[in-house]
Design a protein around this nucleic acid. Structure first.
Lengths: 227, 227
DNA sequence: TTTACAACATGATAATTATCATAAAATATT
DNA sequence: AATATTTTATGATAATTATCATGTTGTAAA
């Protein structure tokens, strides 16, 4: 049983809190850690599901090919999020892809081993269900909320998402291209570009090279909420 | 340990297949069965989650209040479906409502008891996760697919859904009002009515009183797929 | 450095959808 | 049965969004 730092990993408090010390050590034997550069594909849609994945650091997008051949982004996962959707427990192959949108480190634990743990340790099972359940809820709520906002509201929402939830800062480098933002909030690339320009002209944001700065948080909030 | 028919219930093969005979019998003690008339509210958003619910017969809608005060329907559940979303494992209170859209029978099992079973019987846990996982996938896929169809495609889709998945028949009584269909596929009531009229004029469907009959399945399929 | 290619930008127009108005038909209420 | 209310129905118009066209800028490859 090789030594590893799983017992100390922050993620332990998220999913593995119900495991005994012995169990935690056994996780190490089935765990690998991998680094990805921005742009790297981590999982390709259609490939076999062998691992339980979670994001240690960085930022990734989960996306799938729609019938008209375009990618649509299902969600953005941040550190300590599951990178696998719950569907890893029902399917044999991934029905979505995962790519790094920032340099990322992904931990993967053999899925068979996780399933064994689940069947042996009921509290662990409940815990996983709870976490995945919350993940599901967030995706559903987000999708439904976005769906009925106008384009400006959606763009405001996504800017606030990056500022508040991801970077905790009003100045950040957008990790997604305009095209990707369009895929995430279901609109055309042209309109993403256009509305960001409008926001800049209206002095809600500033764009300096790759950096985006939110300069009128209140107005942006109100656009995200009401229009 | 009172006798009940859980061991014979069709639902056993769906979720409870991994339970021992003893466990199945113990389910009986924590189970109640309730009948609802079309229109009855089964669960009201915000109320406490105490039970694990599944639909024995009938048809129900899961819906929630959106910020603008309108209901939006998340999904339609048919017999043997979970009526609870996965969120029952992460939340204390329901963040959605459930109503019968046809006369229905709902079985409810004490959630604490289910959680105990999960923690004692790992295979049961895995099985539940698998089922919920599939449920999640269906909702997500459906939502994303509908989202990028035009109004006519969405109406065609919903007609085919009732014909193929629910009633297994090209003639059926629509269980939802035009207004509810609008809430399910995110459009205005007027447009639902308008497009159903168009479909009737184009001889794709017939509407006789409460009954809807699909008379051009191929065309409807093609509209659902491509436009 | 030149060349290619993708990302960003903006205007004009067409397509799609929502809103508003008005009314008939069906259903529920008194 | 008479009255009110909801559901279905349809047209006209306004608002929203996509598409197409055309350029510029930035970035990667030869």
């Amino acid at each position: 049983m090789n030594k590893c730092d799983c017992a100390l990993c922050e993620f332990r408090t998220i999913v593995f809190e119900d495991l005994s010390s012995n169990e935690i050590y056994s996780v190490c034997g089935y765990k690998t850690e991998k680094n990805y550069k921005k742009g790297d594909v981590i999982i390709r849609e259609g490939s076999q599901i062998n691992d339980f994945l979670y994001l240690k650091s960085g930022l990734v997008k989960l996306y799938k090919l729609s019938k008209d051949g375009k990618d649509q982004i299902i969600s953005i996962a941040k550190p300590l999020d599951f990178v696998s959707l719950v569907s890893i427990f029902s399917d044999k192959t991934y029905n979505f892809s995962i790519s790094a949108i920032e340099d990322s480190t992904v931990c993967s634990v053999d899925l068979k081993f996780i399933k064994e743990l689940i069947s042996k340790n009921g509290n662990f099972a409940l815990n996983i269900m709870q976490k995945m359940s919350r993940n599901f809820d967030n995706i559903i709520n987000n999708t439904f909320n976005l769906q009925k906002k106008h384009l400006r509201g959606r763009i405001a929402h996504i800017l606030l998402f990056f500022a508040n939830e991801i970077y905790k800062n009003n100045e950040f480098e957008l990790p997604l291209s305009r095209k990707e933002i369009a895929q995430l909030i279901d609109m055309t690339t042209e309109n993403v570009i256009r509305i960001l320009s409008e926001f800049r002209q209206d002095k809600l944001i500033e764009i300096h090279g790759k950096n985006t700065i939110i300069i009128n948080l209140n107005k942006l909030n109100s656009i995200a909420e009401h229009g």
